[in-house]
Computed example of a mutant assay.
Amino acid sequence: MINNDVLRRVRFALRINDGNAIDIFKLVDYDMDKDYLQSIMKKDEEAGFLPCRDKTLAMFLDGLVIQRRGKKEGALPNKLKAGEKLSNNDILRKLRIAMSYRDEDMIEILRYANFRIGKTELSALFRKADHRNYKDAGDQIVRNLLQGMVRKYRPEAAKDSTSKKTYSKLQSLPAENNKPTNKQAPRMHYSQKTEKQVAPNTPVNHDIWGKPKPKK
Rank of each mutant, 00 (worst) to 15 (best):
S87R: 02
G118T: 11
L80P: 10
R127T: 00
L170V: 08
W209R: 09
R154D: 12
N201Y: 11
T181G: 06
F60Y: 15
R53Y: 07
P77K: 12
M149W: 10
R151N: 06
A157H: 13
G48M: 05
T181A: 03
V28I: 11
L80K: 04
F12H: 12
L95W: 04
I109D: 07
T202A: 12
E84S: 10
N78C: 10
M99V: 08
M188I: 13
K72T: 14
K215M: 13
D23A: 13
G48E: 02
E121L: 00
G70L: 10
K216L: 13
I16G: 06
T202R: 09
S168D: 10
A75P: 04
N89T: 00
E176T: 06
R8Y: 07
R102E: 15
K42Q: 12
A82H: 10
K81F: 09
M59S: 11
P174D: 00
N205W: 13
N182R: 11
E108M: 08
G74P: 08
K213H: 09
L125C: 02
I24Q: 00
M59W: 12
I109H: 12
I2K: 13
D33Q: 13
S191R: 14
V150T: 02
N4K: 03
F115G: 05
I97T: 15
L125W: 00
K42H: 11
K85S: 13
P51K: 04
K159E: 11
S123Y: 07
D35R: 14
G70N: 02
S39T: 07
V10I: 15
L125G: 04
N88W: 01
W209M: 05
M149I: 12
I208F: 13
K211A: 13
I22K: 11
M1G: 09
N144Y: 14
P51D: 02
T56Y: 01
K179T: 03
Y36L: 15
K193M: 14
F115Q: 02
I141K: 03
F60M: 01
I66Q: 00
D90P: 09
I2M: 11
L122S: 01
D54G: 03
V204E: 15
T166C: 14
L27Q: 08
R53D: 09
P200R: 08
R9E: 14
A58D: 05
Q140W: 10
K215L: 15
R132M: 08
M1S: 14
Q147R: 13
P174W: 11
N177E: 15
T166V: 06
L27C: 03
K152V: 08
L57S: 07
R53L: 11
L92M: 02
K213Y: 09
K42A: 05
K164I: 15
N178P: 06
L7I: 04
I109G: 01
K119D: 10
Y112P: 05
N178L: 07
E45T: 15
V6H: 03
M99R: 05
K211I: 12
K193Y: 08
L7S: 08
E45N: 15
N89W: 06
R9G: 01
K26T: 11
K169Y: 12
P51R: 04
R187C: 10
G210Y: 06
S39W: 08
K119Q: 11
K211V: 13
Y153N: 09
T166F: 09
M106R: 04
D18G: 05
K159V: 09
N133C: 06
I24W: 04
T202F: 11
R69I: 03
K152I: 09
P180Q: 02
D207V: 07
L145S: 05
